[in-house]
Amino acid sequence: MRRSTPLTIVMLAALAYFLLPLFWLVVASTKSTEDLFTTFGLWFSDAPQFLTNVGSTLTYDDGVFVRWLRNTVIYAVVSASGAALLAAAAGYGFAKFRFRGQAIMSSAVLGAIMVPATALAIPTYLLFAQVGLVNTPWAIILPSLVSPFGFYLMRVYAQDAVPDSLLEAARLDGAGEVRIFFQIGLRLLAPGLVTVVLFTLVATWNNYFLPLIMLNDPNLYPVTVGLAAWSAQAAGGGSGGNSDILALLLTGSTLSVLPLMAAFLLLQRYWQSGLAAGSVKQ
């Protein structure tokens, strides 16, 4: 492959476009509220105080930020593993079995990809209110458990990754369908599974509108809603406005993206092989 100078420049520009905001965030989280307004935004101030900021962020309001972070981890991990498992089971079933209504059901699920989750948030709230699930963790986890996109991905992946002959051999040896799925299917599906886990993890981690309307108790908030509340308090003016909290807001934002970055770096091996699945028909 030949090096192309224009292309390199375009890629460098893209790199800067994506990395600069992150760099700004990291720099900003080392500043006091006063330095935020009086020093150059893209470089450190004379008195960096990242650890002080982290300390105040974690202890502000009896450590509410730590609770938010813990909630986000719980919501995201439970939702992601549950969604991956459900998507794998459904995708495997659709790929490896023939049953009545398969085409219609499959189209229905594919159509659901087109409906943004935000549009469903308020109807979901009304339903959950009927059964008393609002203002509980289930209100966040249950809607996140179904991932139409994950289903689609797993279905395509299962078609190629799980050979029919292997399943037949297992059946001839007397294994039941459930055992075949868990002991053979799931293992072969692992790379695709990781991809779905990552997708759902990111989606739940970043979910804002659903928890915003579902949860009233700040002790149940995920980081997204909590930081938005701080932001409103810092920047609204009006009664109770308090710009001192801006430094905590920025530090909190930095802290809240670190776990996702770690998850991506750790799982990227799997996720790359998952992404390419189904791109070439074999």
Partner: peptide, 11 residues
């Protein structure tokens, strides 16, 4: 309950 402020709180 600190349910937030501004438009999100009213929503």
């Amino acid at each position: 309950v600190n349910a937030g402020r501004g438009t999100p709180a009213y929503t």
